[in-house]
Nucleic acid binder design. Structure first.
Lengths: 243, 243
DNA sequence: CAGTGGTCTAGACCACGCG
DNA sequence: GCGTGGTCTAGACCACTGT
């Protein structure tokens, strides 16, 4: 038999998916809902937690629980983004970039294959779609190979690597490691998602033909609306074919 | 100031990562821990929930809380697995396969590009590493193109597609869609993971050179120890165009 | 300030695993 | 049966958001 919180979650989920509760709507307060459902506030909150994990509800401290806007799905196109632009053509993404100079340490040294203390440029990018945080990226580039002209441009998290490819038309290898985890508290607040909503974490390392790593990107996408797509064309005789 | 449950989680996490609590160890009962930390059971349980989400602790109803064995990391190699076998060379994976005949419905029809009711063979695979559930796969193949000899073999979730490639040496396209989410209750119990531990869900669709979809695989990997890796070798002389 | 969610308590009762 | 975790209660007090 379903537990109380499952029943409540199911009921609220129904009301959301059948649009009786519409995106942006504020739910009754937790105290009111608890009274309506004849449960304690703790039980009601655990029901809401399930809906948060599914990305249906967003809690805002001091304001209430809101039905999330069903945002456009985010598609991250793997393989170095060569096949097509991955943003929807009509997507209006606003991107904030914070550029800082840092020095390699910890995992970054291994990713970039540089020694500890190596000077790097960090791009801390947050993209927004209509005020709603959309994705998060930290991109690291060794400072000795980043032309200043490139570094000072606004840099979409998906575009930095493409720009470098354009500048240096050598072959490059891209290695993308994808994992699923819960967000760090900081990531959760930046993306305005619940700490119980899984994120897709992509680590992308780009190397030039000499094997030198020219960029490492740590991307974080909200799991409720992000997919990473990788398309492989197996080749027998002829060269690559474009889709 | 960190909340009580954060302090407790941090303390227990320390005791686990510094091996003062070793893999397989049973923690004191929740009531005992609550007394030790001078908190209520509810607070203590929420601290344990954080550690579950990180994959450090496994709760077993009626038995206790256990420090998880740190299992070998799972690496899923994308790109159709042509470059290398993705299982560690010394991995001892035991795989159970349940083969059933089903008919296409719902999302499957779109994935396989067949009509509703089309006869399919479903492979329901669970792989184990030393009794510990490791990964979960549901693989669907249109029944009219699956040689019986292949279908009756034990079929590792990673190997079915490679086997088909070997049998039919035509070019093939592989499209892998990766997402992060919380497991369904069924997936959580099969993989013996917490329902708050994110999973990496990979949908892999393989097509032959004619564009016919020959296989759809739905893979679920525990997020605390799985990565999917995609490697792309860019070729310059072949005429890629940017944007 | 009033109203909201966030944390926490000190219990109760139920369901599971094992001897 | 006993000890374990799973669910739930009816509060209390704190922190944040708006007026």
């Amino acid at each position: 038999m379903p537990s109380r919180r499952h029943s409540i979650a199911n009921d609220l989920r129904d009301r959301i998916t059948t649009a009786r509760l519409k995106p942006g709507d504020r739910l009754p307060s937790e105290a009111q809902l608890a009274t309506q459902y004849q449960v304690s506030t703790a039980t009601l909150r655990s029901a809401l937690a399930m809906l948060q994990g599914e990305g249906l509800v967003e809690k805002i401290h001091g304001k209430g629980n809101f039905v999330r806007h069903s945002l456009r799905r985010i598609t991250y196109a793997g393989g170095g983004s060569t096949q097509a632009p991955q943003a929807a053509p009509d997507a209006t993404l606003r991107i904030t970039v914070r550029t800082t100079k840092v020095r390699a340490r910890g995992d970054l040294t291994a990713l970039l294959q540089v020694s500890t203390g190596c000077p790097l440029t960090e791009f801390h990018c947050v993209s927004y779609e209509a005020k709603s945080p959309h994705s998060l990226a930290r991109i690291y580039v060794p400072r000795d190979l980043a032309p200043a002209a490139v570094l000072n441009e606004p840099c979409p998290y998906v575009g930095a690597e493409a720009r470098f490819v354009a500048l240096r038309p050598t072959s490059a290898d891209v290695r993308e490691t994808v994992s699923a985890r819960l967000p760090t508290p900081e990531e959760a607040s930046t993306l305005r998602i619940s700490t119980v909503l899984a994120v897709l974490a992509i680590t992308r390392v780009t190397a030039d033909i000499t094997g030198r790593v020219v960029e490492a990107a740590l991307l974080v996408l909200p799991g409720d609306r992000a997919d990473a797509v990788f398309t492989t064309h197996h080749v027998t005789d002829e060269g690559w074919t474009e889709r």
